[in-house]
Design a protein around this nucleic acid. Structure first.
Lengths: 110, 110
DNA sequence: TTCCGTGCTACAATAAACGTAGCAGCACGC
DNA sequence: GCGTGCTGCTACGTTTATTGTAGCACGGAA
């Protein structure tokens, strides 16, 4: 959000002038609550308020902003009936993150 | 940072009142440039300036702060001879992230 | 109608990140 | 000695992101 600023066809690119997918992704996931939201949505869909509760009562402002980012990135979608959930793509990403849980346990015992 | 604020024995915990390792980890990795730094250090060690260049000339202020966080978390270490590199633990974490690269490619083609 | 729960927004305050500049330390060649 | 260039790192003023609290409009049920 500063710097030369680059764009791709579909995304503003903040932390990267290259627009390389991995950089765009790392930038998106590096925004606060992104990882946490994906983590909390790994199971059942959650309503915005349930998600907020799961996310330690984070401010609805950021949460909405992040949900908006993640929806734009096709990682999260909103269902009228049940709330927010991961898309197929989001679920794929979430699978990559599952081992993080085990790593975190090991890491905390360092 | 705000919120009730919790502490574990070794870490301030920002995004979590629980102190559960996964939450602490997600919080750490959710800070700007954390993921990118780990990504850029996946190969050879880099000097602080080389890392900064690799990270799109991010401000040295944040980079130092993040390096400090990551060093405190035993994910990154500093070598007098060659600069910064991932620790054994950091390298383990980095392995978890490698598939992200392939995911990012798929994701960008959505 | 009233009562909830939903998704979402306003707004002022605080904290994080940015960009630029520059420091001290150390090794080199001269 | 003296400059040159590299290292890690910091100061500081500005901009941006995030926070916390409050509250909106909408829809469904009672």
């Amino acid at each position: 959000m500063s710097k030369p600023i680059a764009k791709t066809t579909t995304h503003r690119v903040r932390g990267s002038t290259s627009g390389r997918p991995i950089m765009v992704l790392l930038d998106l996931l590096g925004r606060r609550w992104s990882l946490r939201i994906i983590w909390e949505l790994r199971g059942e869909p959650l309503t915005s308020r349930a998600l907020r509760a799961a996310c330690d009562d984070a401010s609805p402002t950021v949460l909405q902003a992040r949900l908006s980012d993640l929806r734009e990135a096709d990682l999260v979608e909103h269902l009228l009936e049940s709330g927010y959930r991961l898309t197929v793509l989001g679920r794929e990403l979430s699978k990559e993150f599952m081992p993080l849980h085990h790593f975190a346990e090991r890491w905390s015992k360092r």
